[in-house]
Write a protein that binds this DNA or RNA. Sequence first.
DNA 1: AGCGCCGGTTCATTATTGACACCACTGTTG
DNA 2: CAACAGTGGTGTCAATAATGAACCGGCGCT
Lengths: 249, 249
Amino acid sequence: MKTVDKAFTVLDQFSAERTEVGLSELARLADLDKAATRRLLVALSKHGFIEQSAETRKYRLGQGFLRLARIREATVPMAQAAQSVVDWLVEEVDETVHVSVPAGAAMSTIAFRLPRRGNVINLVPADALLYHATATGYAFMAHATQGTLTRVLALKREATAAGTLTAKADVMAKIEETRAQGYARTRNSFEDGVSSVAMPFYFDQPDPAGAISIALPEARMTDERCAELLPFLREAIARLEKALTGGVH
Amino acid sequence: MKTVDKAFTVLDQFSAERTEVGLSELARLADLDKAATRRLLVALSKHGFIEQSAETRKYRLGQGFLRLARIREATVPMAQAAQSVVDWLVEEVDETVHVSVPAGAAMSTIAFRLPRRGNVINLVPADALLYHATATGYAFMAHATQGTLTRVLALKREATAAGTLTAKADVMAKIEETRAQGYARTRNSFEDGVSSVAMPFYFDQPDPAGAISIALPEARMTDERCAELLPFLREAIARLEKALTGGVH
DNA sequence: AGCGCCGGTTCATTATTGACACCACTGTTG
DNA sequence: CAACAGTGGTGTCAATAATGAACCGGCGCT
C-alpha cells in the first residue's frame, strides 16, 4: 500500500509549527514528486482531510480529523482518562505531569497540567517529543517489542540539549538502564535544566500505549525526590490502565 | 487516487455507534474486497490510524487522529471558536445551540450546549446529522456551490421523522425557500417534536464552513419566537466568522 | 528581458491492485 | 458426529491505476 504510505507521509509534514504548506515545499518535505503530491492533496481534500487556503493557495489539514478524533475518543477515551489521571498526579506531586503516546516519528502529548507553584516546567502540547530525548520516549522504547524498537531506532536523532544522547550505543545503554530499573529518568536531555521520570502504560497491545511523565527543574531532582515520586507514578499508571480497560466494552 | 479514496471509505465505516469492526464486515460495509481491505488496514495501522483489538481481532480507529486533530485545531481553532460562540448564544436565547460542519456523507457537530431550563432538545455530539433532515443541512446546502450541492443531493435520503423530506423535488424546494429567506427552518424533520433555525457561516472557502443552529421543542417555535431568534443567530454568525478570520495569521 | 520559483497538468511507462480461490480455525446445527 | 457457515488471513496474476520527467503560464525580482 505504497499510495497510502505516501498519503500519510504528506499529512505528516504538517505540525503545530508548520500548519500551512505550499505544493512545492510539501513535495520537497515529503520527498515525493510534485505531481504525485498534488494528486494526493486533491484526493485528501475530496474527503475533507486537506483544505487549500483560498488566498495563499497553501494547503492545511482539514476538518475531517476532528470527526475521526471524536470517534476514536468515543472508542477508547484515552485523552479523557489521561487528563483525569494527570489532574490527580499533579495534585499529589506538585510538578508538571504529562501523558504522551507514540505518534509516528515522535511522541505526542495527549494530556498535561502544570502545578500551582512558581518554578515549573512548561510544555507545548501538540509538540513532538523525540524518543531519544525524553523520559517518555525511553519508557516507551525500553518496553516496546523488538520490531517497534528497531523502527524507532532507525529514525534520525538530533541533540536538543546538552545531555541528549544521539549515538545508538548510548541510546541502547540508556534503554537497558531504563528496563533494569523499571522507570526512565533523564537530565538535560530534552531541554537544559529539565529532569523527568516516566513509566509506560499498556492498553490492549504488546507495545506500551504511551507513558506518564513527571517533569521538574533539574535543581529539584535529587535521588530522594525521585524515590518519592516513583510510588505516585506507579499509582497513576495503575489508575490509567484501570480507566482504559474498565471503561471500554 | 482510487487507493486513497478506498482508505477513507474504510475509515468512514467507523462511527460513534460502530467503533469496532471485523475484517469481513468492514469489507462488506465498504464494498471492497477482503484482501484489499486487509491491505488497507495493515497500511493504516502502520501509521497509527488503525488499531486491532488484541482479544477480538476487530479493528478500530487509532491514536493518530488525535494528533492530526490537534494540529488542525492549532491551524484553524474552529471547535474552540464555535464553542465560545455557542456559549454566548445559549445564554441569549435560552435554547439548545449547536455548530455543525460538513463531514463526508453528513454533518457533524463540533460544539453544542443545552440551556439551563427544563424542556430542551438534547443531542448526541459525534452523531451524524443528515443534510436533508436538519436545519443545519439546509443552511449548508442552500449556500453551497453547485458541485458540492450535486454531490450532497446524490446521497441516499432516508426519513428519520414524520416531517423529513426525501424526494429530490421537495428537498430542492426547501433549499430554494431557505435561500430566499436567508435562514433554514425545519419542523419534525430530524426528530418529531424538534424545530430548528440555522444559518451558515463561512471561512476561506466558497462553500459554507458549517452552520449554527438553534433547536427547540416544536411547541415553543412560533413565528414570533423565530423572529426573536434570528437577530441573535445573525450576531452569532458574525462573531464566529470574526473569531475565525481574526484569530488566524 | 532573463531568471527562478510557484501551482498546476500531461501522457507513455511501469508498478500496484482487485478478484478469487484457498487455508486454518471456531461456533452452530441437525 | 459431520456438515455447514461464519471468521481472519494469504498467494496468484491479469487488469488497472499510479508514476514522474517534461511542460505550461504566471508572478516577482534584478
